[in-house]
Amino acid sequence: MPSETCGPERHPCRHGRTEGGCAHCQVRLVSVCSALTPEELNELELLSRHVVLDARQTLFSQGEETTAVYNVTGGALRLSRLLPDGRRHVMGFALVGDFLGLVLTERQTVTAEALSPVTVCRFDRRAFQDLMVRKPHLLQRLHERAGYELGLAQELMLLLARRGAEEKVASFLVALRGRYARIGLTSVTLELPMGRQDIADHLGLTIETVSRTLTRLDREKLILIVPGGVRLLDMPRLERLSG
């Protein structure tokens, strides 16, 4: 089970969090929390619980009652949905700064599983909704974030419908690099916390196709496969390939 602690002293110095709490959290700069003043951050902190998950632990499951909102402060999670025919589709991946649980439905539409050690701030859903009513600027930031995520979903729909395997994988790498850049990670080495099967289930491909495509991109010197990820050697060619 995920471990959880509370109180102002609950935030250990791990994954961007410091003992100073929300006001000193480095993740705040890339999260919707950046819209809040120091006083408002203190108010937000009183609502939060610090949750730690090990790799492969589940934060919440599809069909589960939506009782909380989560801000990812460390690690990465896989967001998947079980289809009626029993197949799994990976809807996406949550990274540092992402908010989860902001669904309008009363039950979760996806399952969120940790791909690596993960830390999140957990907020009771009703308490968080009350805070948004009182802090319109926070609601505006959440709307902006929702618009960004809608754009990602639309790009994925186009990706799945119109492109071949090489274009899909190249687009996935370019998009992931862009998401990392949004949180200040601009290294040419792209960390891939998700496995080949996760990427395949996300892009509508087989794991064999994903592996062959990555190997081909490596052979053509667009990328270099390294432990834990890939090194992006030729971004202009990758971007052209991704369309």
Rank of each mutant, 00 (worst) to 15 (best):
A112S: 06
S61E: 14
A127M: 03
V110M: 13
A68C: 09
A114R: 02
L115T: 05
G97P: 04
V52S: 09
C121P: 01
V133R: 10
R88H: 07
S116C: 12
S80V: 01
S61V: 15
H50D: 11
M91R: 06
T58G: 07
L83R: 12
F60P: 07
L59C: 08
G86H: 08
E106H: 14
M132S: 07
E64W: 09
S80W: 01
L82M: 05
V51E: 04
L53P: 07
T109F: 14
L79W: 00
T111L: 07
R88Q: 11
R134N: 01
T119K: 12
V103A: 15
V103W: 13
G63I: 00
V72E: 04
V51N: 00
T111D: 09
A94E: 01
L82S: 07
V52W: 08
V52L: 11
G92D: 15
V69T: 04
G97C: 06
L79A: 01
F123E: 06
T119F: 11
F128Y: 15
E65N: 09
C121I: 09
N71M: 14
A112G: 05
T73H: 03
S61N: 12
R78G: 06
Q108A: 15
L95C: 10
V90K: 00
F128R: 04
P136L: 04
D130A: 14
R126S: 13
G92W: 14
G74P: 01
T67V: 13
V90M: 00
A112D: 04
L82E: 08
L102H: 09
A68Y: 13
L131Q: 08
R126E: 14
R126Y: 15
V69K: 02
D98G: 05
E64M: 12
M91P: 04
V103F: 15
V103T: 15
E113W: 03
G97F: 06
Q108N: 15
D124C: 14
R122M: 10
L79I: 03
F93H: 12
P84A: 08
R56Q: 13
R56C: 10
V120Y: 02
R81T: 14
D130K: 14
T105K: 12
F123V: 09
G63S: 00
D85H: 15
L59D: 08
L79P: 00
G74Y: 03
L79M: 05
A114T: 04
A55R: 02
E65D: 12
L100R: 00
G75R: 00
L104P: 01
P84N: 02
A114H: 02
F93A: 08
T58N: 11
L102D: 09
G92Y: 15
T111N: 08
L102C: 13
D54H: 12
